[in-house]
Amino acid sequence: MNCHEEIIEYMHDYLDEDIKPEHKEVLRKHLHDCAECRDYFHEMKKAVALVQSTSHIKAPDDFTAKVMAQLPKETKTTGAKRWFKSHPFMTAAAMFIILMTGSVFSTYNQDEHFSVSKQPNLVVEGETVIVPEGETIKGNVVVQNGNIQIDGEVEEM
């Protein structure tokens, strides 16, 4: 085989897909004439094919879980951020609850505010509603959290 060293080098170049066109031609001609080198080349290609045939092994099913369990812990804020991102519905529901609670409280608070039914002729001084003298108010006058002073008249509808 020693006399064919150059040819073997070309075989490797060929298998590396890195052969010069003129060397490829030399190799082709030589393989055509020399049975010994033909066998050699065949053996080499066979070895490569056999090695290639062993590929495609799969990692165990729990591989990723095991890796994740070994990672150092992440920061809390990122965890929370991701939770919001990955649970948009829960986030929306939480927002809804917060806003609803807020509005319940604000309506509740409104009960303590001074209010009076809207009628013309009513005079409001501070938290006192005055029905002025000589005026007639039509309909009920409703006053919440305040006083009423009736100098005129209130007529039921």
Binding site: H12, L15, D16, Y40, E43, M44, K46, A47, V48, L50, V51
Partner: peptide, 13 residues
């Protein structure tokens, strides 16, 4: 790679 291929050729022929 060449050396490895040579070795494999001998081993797997």
């Amino acid at each position: 790679i060449h050396r490895g291929r040579e070795a494999l050729r001998k081993q797997l022929r």
